[in-house]
């Protein structure tokens, strides 16, 4: 066995099929620790299935999926408990004293949730709820964070503001982050590496490493070109 201490997720020759329908054949990729990877592709190409395989909700028909570490997911729909306040939701399943730690206060500040600590989810906008969900994860001891199209339900402006807040919060915390999205701008802005998937059959048609630690550091022109090259690959 390879030394897997610096690998978070590894797909080896993974086949996945449902009855007659074959989704992937011989899917291979590796995600290293503390990487921020985006998985981009058209809908129906299996992004959610990849997520399910990583999270352990699905098992591959053939091949192996190796995961090192705890996984938490932020989904498109909020899973906050409506009868608990923001603070209580964040501290769910954890020792209540965590609410007094530096980490908690730091994140609360970075995600701009401070004024809303005692609000209830139904009083918050969609974007804020996503932030609370993220913070719930970040306050715990999670190694791997999966984001499944977390901003799809938000409007344009919100998407951008909240995206920035997310990135600011996650920057200091050294976790492996896997972002699943169909928004290419988002992928380019936020992540360090983009896996582009195509469908029928689902394969990785490109694996682009962006030479930056986090968003915003690439030049505008580069980003523009990159984006259109990805789009053209997806649409051929």
């Amino acid at each position: 066995m390879q030394n897997s201490s610096d690998i978070s997720v590894k797909f080896e020759n993974v086949h996945l099929s449902f009855d007659d329908f074959v989704l992937f054949q011989e899917l291979n990729f590796t995600i290293k620790k503390k990487e921020f990877v985006s998985i981009v592709g058209p809908s129906g190409c299996g992004k959610t299935s990849i997520l399910n395989l990583i999270a352990g909700y699905l098992a591959p028909s053939e091949g192996a999926v190796t995961v090192n570490g705890n996984i938490r997911t932020v989904f498109q729909n909020s899973s906050l408990f409506p009868w608990l306040s923001v603070r209580e939701n964040i501290l769910i399943g954890k020792n209540k004293t965590k609410g007094n730690t530096e980490v908690y206060k730091y994140l609360l500040h970075k995600l701009k949730l401070e004024p809303f600590e005692n609000f209830y989810p139904n009083q918050l906008s969609g974007g804020m709820r996503q932030k609370v969900e993220l913070m719930r994860i970040l306050v715990g001891e999670t190694d791997i964070i999966l984001l499944d199209e977390p901003f799809s339900a938000l409007d344009y402006i919100n998407r951008i503001t909240i995206r920035n807040d997310f990135v600011n919060a996650m920057k200091e915390l050294d976790k492996t982050i896997i972002l699943i999205t169909h928004d290419i701008d988002e992928a380019i802005e936020m992540s360090q590496r983009i896996c582009v998937l195509n469908k029928k059959p689902t394969t990785i048609i490109d694996d682009i490493g962006l030479n930056k630690s986090y968003s915003g550091e690439a030049g505008q022109q580069q980003l523009h070109d990159l984006k259109y090259s990805i789009i053209s690959k997806l649409t051929t």
Binding site: R72, F75, N77, S79, F81, W83, L84, I92, G93
Partner: peptide, 26 residues
Amino acid sequence: PESFFRVAKEYQFSKRDMFMKLILPA
């Protein structure tokens, strides 16, 4: 919603917690 149960599982709710802290409030 299923998602609530998922959260409960992720945060390792005991059976008692499931009843008192998830189901009854929900």
